[in-house]
């Protein structure tokens, strides 16, 4: 009974203390972030891509699945600004429509993988002992397991399809995040404010998610944004090995891998997906760097 009271009190206490501060912090954060021009440009690019992902099917000049067997592999030019692919489909339309699948699956897979990894890392770092060893040994096993095998196994066991590919990609995101989070947790754990919170009678879960977790975020952001790029590419690699998510729906990675046979005869087929992937990965990374630098209190 007394316990809850104290907790309740400390909650109120914390809320009262933090609210106004949080507001000004957010404002300050935005102000700081806006100063990082490359990051802002990257951010705008990503927003544009997200908008494209939503509206593309309604605005593109051609139906992304519309084949035209009399116009195979034609180069960029009038009619088809980025040319047509091996079925005579419009590459520009396919890429734009494909934004949805590619971004969505990469983001989802990374978020799921990160969430899993962060959770494991927090638990391992915070509680230590047997739990720590168990989780870390599990990660060791995962690391020692080649990604490709894992992906093949996932796809072979539960069948092909976008969700399954996302699961496969998410699964091999887990161990590296668990590691990073664990070491970040270990260092955050020593900080003074954690001690204070603990002495105020915070429950473990509250300590973990309200106090420890935010402290580990800066070190996570860079890895997270880098992983999004890896996830987009992983889709392409899986497609190269025949384990792609989508064969009939447009998808950047699959376009790149299925078009590779035309690299020396119709290079535009892989050039445009390649550039788009490059720009997107670049944008996520620049955004990540910007966010990290903005969040880092030691930087001005």
């Amino acid at each position: 009974m007394a316990q809850t009271k104290i907790n309740g009190y400390s909650d109120q206490f914390a809320a009262a203390e933090e609210l106004p501060k949080a507001k000004s912090r957010a404002k300050e954060f935005i102000k700081k972030f806006l100063k990082r021009r490359t990051a802002v440009v990257a951010f705008v690019f990503i927003i544009l891509m997200i908008i494209m992902a939503i509206i593309a099917p309604y605005i593109v000049p051609y139906d992304a699945g519309q084949a035209d067997y009399s116009n195979l592999l034609s180069g960029p030019g009038k009619g088809h600004i980025w040319g047509t692919d091996e079925y005579g489909r419009d590459i520009f339309s396919r890429l734009m429509v494909g934004t949805r699948t590619s971004l969505f699956s990469a983001l989802t897979a990374t978020v799921i993988g990160t969430a899993g990894g962060v959770l494991l890392g927090l638990l391992a770092g915070f509680f230590g002992g047997i739990l720590d060893s168990l989780i870390m040994r599990f990660c060791d096993v995962m690391f020692a397991f080649p990604d490709i095998l894992l992906a093949i196994a996932v796809v072979a066991i539960i069948g092909p399809g976008m969700i399954n590919v996302m699961i496969a990609v998410a699964v091999f995101t887990v161990p590296s995040f668990a590691r990073i989070t664990r070491s970040a947790t270990l260092s955050v754990k020593q900080e003074l404010y954690i001690e204070v919170a603990r002495s105020l009678g915070c429950t473990n879960s509250r300590l973990l998610f309200v106090h420890v977790l935010p402290g580990t975020i800066p070190s996570m952001i860079v890895n997270f944004t880098m992983r999004i790029g890896t996830a987009i590419l992983a889709a392409s690699s899986l497609s190269f090995l025949g384990f792609g998510a989508n064969v009939t729906e447009p998808d950047w990675g699959a376009m790149l891998s299925q078009g590779r046979n035309y690299l020396n005869t119709a290079p535009h087929i892989v050039l445009f997906p390649g550039i788009l992937i490059l720009l997107t990965v670049l944008a996520f990374n620049l955004l990540g760097d910007g966010l990290r630098d903005t969040l880092d209190p030691k930087m001005n």
Partner: peptide, 25 residues
């Protein structure tokens, strides 16, 4: 800094089979 990171990001965002085939060509 930007140039270095650009090289790095290009390195991450190019799939191996694509890079390999291009280098051969």
């Amino acid at each position: 800094d930007y140039l270095g990171m650009l090289i790095a990001i290009v390195g991450i965002s190019v799939p191996g089979f694509w890079l390999g085939l291009q280098l051969i060509q």
